[in-house]
Design a protein around this nucleic acid. Sequence first.
DNA 1: ATTTGTTTACGAAGATATTCGTAGATGTTC
DNA 2: GAACATCTACGAATATCTTCGTAAACAAAT
Lengths: 144, 144
Amino acid sequence: MFAHQDSETRFDHPNYIILKQQKPTESELEILGILWERGASTVREVHEKLAETKEAGYTTTLKLMQIMYEKGLLTRDASSKTHIYAAAVSQQETQQQLLNKMIDTVFGGSATQLVMQALGHHKSSGEELDQIRKYLSEIEKQQR
Amino acid sequence: MFAHQDSETRFDHPNYIILKQQKPTESELEILGILWERGASTVREVHEKLAETKEAGYTTTLKLMQIMYEKGLLTRDASSKTHIYAAAVSQQETQQQLLNKMIDTVFGGSATQLVMQALGHHKSSGEELDQIRKYLSEIEKQQR
DNA sequence: ATTTGTTTACGAAGATATTCGTAGATGTTC
DNA sequence: GAACATCTACGAATATCTTCGTAAACAAAT
């Protein structure tokens, strides 16, 4: 029911031909977030981090990560007994994908609306605001 | 499994005591988006709009909206045969809720990151950029 | 080598979301 | 009022997501 997805060839994966980045679910995003931050990690490590915020059994985390691997969201190194997983999709790409969807359905298509809403309710330091100003100028420069 | 929700009293609803804004699902968000844009509408109208992007039967849309009504996401006027639905949750509040979650899990907690990512990949007119600059100044003023 | 602990694999139950067929109510047209 | 169209209500099938128990593999400790 969600948007159609282009197929593409990939290696380093049992299926060989898999769908391009499937939309991660809620739980999957949490795990991706941890892997982006920590870099390659074991299930145990991810689970530990996860348990700080959320109640869940170890095998639940394991199963999730196995599924994510099958989907192509994670890669893994199974050379030692304790497998090591890493995110297979980039943080940037995923962010963009989710942002686009969100802008479209919830912000009536206006990225500006989203930006202002995000700025309004998050205390940003003066430094951060300056950083954004700088960024704005760059964009304007590029567009010319 | 998701964050706990405070209970609160409400009227204009069969249950009387319902949970505070449940997290809308993907499909529900699409419908909310349409209602925010169009204002109060019939199922038929929402369905028509929905069908522009998405494949779905009429009764599917109907059922969804009925469920959303039961959840308290929509209100409805059933005085005439053809019921008229409206969003019961504000666009702003919902936007903020989703943004917060997203900043937290996908942007490592940094609203600034989100803003820059959003600005980077959406062509914004010079006008819009100015609007954002103005907004930045206001925020700075308020914080002092 | 037996116990103990940690790991993966697997299957299946439970929870939630999505889809749609069918029936009955209501309204409209001829 | 009979035929037709449109609407709601309801139930159930399907699909997807989440959770976890159990077993087998493996390693380390006694």
